[in-house]
């Protein structure tokens, strides 16, 4: 298969970050980057990875199926990963789930008819003090309310995404300036 040059260059960088005799260590980061570039890891990509890393195909499949962020089927354009762990639920994530399901007209694991959004409920995304939170592709959004959720979804629909909450807002005393 044709592997894009950008991915080949990226793979060289990844190999460089490990001792030369430890090429196998590149497996997870390489799959992560391949998925970023190609949308998912197809059997063809698995072959390329096995060959370039120098491991068996079954080894590639084993690692690929272990990590929940790696996928064998292409995700839709916008992957909405919505947290439903304790802190998010304490902040009302369950009501918001019903709202997002209604807004998108889909349930957990489904894709909208226009192929734009896939909804997935996930466990703790590490945004507990800014709950409820979600990721849309690589973008982090915190302190979700029904209104904010609507704005974010509409933003992606119209091609003008709401800027993500980056960096994470400083809440708590770590955000206070101290006199030196």
């Amino acid at each position: 298969m044709d592997i894009p040059d950008t991915l080949v260059r990226k793979s060289e960088e990844i190999f460089f970050s490990f001792p030369p005799e430890r090429r196998e260590s590149a497996l997870v980061p390489l799959m992560f980057e391949a998925q970023r570039e190609l949308g998912c890891i197809t059997p063809d990509t698995e072959h390329w990875i096995a060959e370039t890393v120098g491991v068996s195909l079954v080894k590639v499949r084993e690692v690929l199926t272990f990590y929940s962020m790696l996928r064998r089927e292409r995700a839709e354009k916008f992957l909405v990963q919505f947290c439903r762990n304790i802190s998010c639920c304490l902040a009302g994530a369950e009501d918001l789930q019903r709202h997002v399901e209604k807004k998108l007209g889909i349930r957990n694991g489904e894709t909208t008819a226009d192929g734009l959004f896939t909804l997935r409920y996930v466990e703790c995304l590490g945004g507990c003090s800014w709950a409820p939170m979600m990721l849309v592709n690589e973008m982090q959004y915190y302190q979700l309310t029904p209104e904010k959720l609507d704005r974010i979804i509409e933003g992606f629909r119209s091609g003008r995404p709401v800027p993500p909450d980056e960096p994470t807002p400083l809440l708590g005393n770590v955000g206070e300036k101290i006199a030196v």
């Binding site: 304790i86 003090s129 709950a131 955000g175």
Partner: peptide, 17 residues
């Protein structure tokens, strides 16, 4: 210690105490 405070409080956040 950096405490991650979340749940049913008025001012969740990270507090270094």
């Amino acid at each position: 210690t950096l405490f991650s405070l979340s749940g049913s409080v008025n001012r969740p956040g990270v507090y270094e105490l």
